[in-house]
Computed example of a mutant assay.
Amino acid sequence: MINTSSIEWSSFKAELLQYPGLLLQFQYATDKWVNANYHITEIKQATITSVDCGGVMNAWTEIIVQLWEPTEEEEGRAMQVKKALSIIDLVESKLALNPKGIVKIEFGNSEFDTRQMYPGEFKIDGDNLIINLTPDATQCKAINRGGSCGTTATGEECCAPAQPEKRKIELVNLTADQNSCTPGNGCC
């Protein structure tokens, strides 16, 4: 997987453990915040196995924390980091989360299509631990490995199926030591 802003599950959790008494807030776009009354509805672990356009197999694990905004406002309800940690403990008591798994936060509401984003900067602002979310993007792993996506300098396409190697066939005259027909000798 290629990205510039990912964080592993062990680092994400270690960051939260430093600030149990703060309120956990998420900013998903400029001046756009997940409502303070959000719920962590589930934590998912997904093992991804893929083959890219260059024919290379890739594998990684993602830990996806899903946030949900209730339609009804809940006054005075804002999640403290220690509440998020208690949900994490509950999940981990039933599912061993890969400490090297890449963390994504899944969120959407009526104004923002549901998507998975990376936790970016962790920032303390007063009583709040703010996690700025950064968008995920599609990528070409072949280009990142130094290959190409499209046409190479030799005219091959990296996304085309691999061509079988051409073999040279050596012709052998199996009848050289035997009587054989040759043009004009009357045997044919």
Rank of each mutant, 00 (worst) to 15 (best):
T138R: 07
I143N: 10
C140D: 13
Q66R: 09
I87D: 06
T49Q: 08
I40D: 00
M57V: 10
N37L: 01
R115W: 07
T47N: 00
M117S: 14
G54T: 08
G55V: 08
A59W: 00
N98M: 00
E69W: 02
Q139W: 09
D52M: 09
L67D: 03
G108Q: 04
A84R: 05
R77Q: 09
L129R: 01
L22Q: 06
T134L: 09
T47F: 00
E121Y: 08
C53V: 12
P70S: 04
N132S: 13
W68R: 10
C53D: 13
I87W: 08
P119V: 14
V34L: 06
A29W: 08
E92T: 15
E111M: 08
N58Q: 12
A84T: 11
A78C: 02
D89V: 06
V103R: 06
S110D: 15
E92D: 14
G54F: 01
D31L: 08
G55N: 03
I64V: 12
G101F: 03
I143E: 15
D125Y: 06
I124G: 02
G120R: 09
L67Q: 03
P135S: 11
G101L: 06
K94H: 14
V56M: 05
K100N: 15
E75W: 10
E73N: 11
E121S: 13
E69A: 10
D136H: 09
K83A: 10
L129N: 01
D113C: 01
S86M: 11
M57T: 14
W33E: 08
I105M: 03
K83H: 10
M117A: 10
Q45M: 05
N58L: 11
R115F: 05
P135D: 14
K100S: 14
I105G: 02
I48V: 15
K104E: 05
S50R: 07
A137M: 12
Y38M: 01
Q80E: 04
E75L: 10
L129S: 01
T30E: 15
Q25V: 15
T134I: 07
I87V: 14
G21L: 05
